[in-house]
Nucleic acid binder design. Structure first.
Lengths: 187, 187
DNA sequence: AGCACAGTTTACCGATCTGTACACCCAAAG
DNA sequence: CTTTGGGTGTACAGATCGGTAAACTGTGCT
């Protein structure tokens, strides 16, 4: 049970779940796709749910790391970083394997608010909200928590709309809206 | 094959799919829940996919009818109606059987952009965007299509965030953001 | 050498999945 | 009354679902 073997399984499962969904992906499929035997799979993860939770943990780590790093590459001041967040989003949308937010999809497939998967998906959004709040506070916004929440709404809305409407440049529209909200909150 | 019988099946299936999801709900479950026999079910709908498409058509009709009517009850002028949309949303969020947007969930479970279910889910959002654009134009916004898109982002973001974060009053925050955007677009 | 253990193969479990074959029932038409 | 035909229930098909049993293989440690 090498720990890196487990990580490799989680990485591969992440790809498949992200592409095809949770209920639509059976364990048999993952076993074939990873090349590992079914017994080994169940040695590493006692249930499918446990595997999904591990996948979500990895996805949270990957996404937040990428998001924050990219934002800091794109801008220096907190205010500019809040806007750069939407440039980063736009880059993500244009990746050809973009399939929306895994946590929104997880919350959509496991709707019971008390289900561990649903809870963990919510935790990801809470952490993002915290990050935004922090930036808003540093930028000197009047009500940083409220502004952060509003910017989060723009981000989430842009993601789900980008999935369903493949037409317009939603990241740009979201960024311009964020600009208006930010300006309004700074005065 | 009375047509009202078919409609009754669609109505009941809508409830179950909305509560439990598409992949997680089997046809056997629907047969039990509706009391109809399996053979009859498949006489009305040749496949599960056909049933889901019928459900989405009904949902689109129900939701847009309710949404527009409620908005017109709450406000008279186009500008006020754009803001009242978020009051209507808030009422929806507080219904105890609120489970998010069925079309976002449909798009999340059927991710292939060419899949009929995904396409139909996108169509719903396109119709909502048209409705918003119309109101923005009547309200005299500078760039009505862009403003409509931004307000749609706020709406969609509020929905998915309301599903995952059960804490704050997202409809209110979204409305205040809409107010700022609207004011900015009217000057 | 001998042991421990990660990982494999193969076969299987009962449940559930979408979808179908077929005989039956009952009302309207001849 | 008999025939016709739509709607029904039963029973099933074949695949897949999540998960397990048991015996084997290979590697590293002592």
């Amino acid at each position: 049970m090498r720990p890196n073997k487990r990580d490799e399984l989680v990485r591969k499962a992440l790809q498949v779940f992200y592409r095809d969904g949770f209920h639509a992906t059976g364990m048999d499929r993952l076993v074939v796709e990873t090349g590992v035997s079914k017994t080994s799979m169940y040695k590493h993860f006692r249930t499918k749910e446990e595997l999904i939770l591990a996948v979500l943990r990895l996805r949270d780590e990957n996404f937040r790391n990428w998001f924050v790093r990219r934002i800091e590459e794109l801008a220096d001041t907190p205010a500019d970083q809040l806007l750069a967040a939407f440039d980063a989003l736009g880059e993500w949308f244009h990746e050809d394997n973009f399939r929306g937010c895994m946590f929104i999809k997880a919350g959509a497939e496991y709707q019971d608010p008390d289900h561990p998967i649903h809870v963990q998906a919510g935790e990801h959004k809470r952490l993002l909200l915290e990050y935004f709040s922090d930036l808003c506070r540093k930028a000197g916004a009047r009500d940083p928590d409220k502004l952060a929440c509003q910017l989060l709404l723009l981000k989430e809305g842009a993601i789900v709309t980008a999935v369903l409407l493949h037409s317009c440049d939603l990241a740009r529209d979201a960024k311009e809206a964020a600009q208006v909200l930010l300006q309004n909150a700074l005065v």
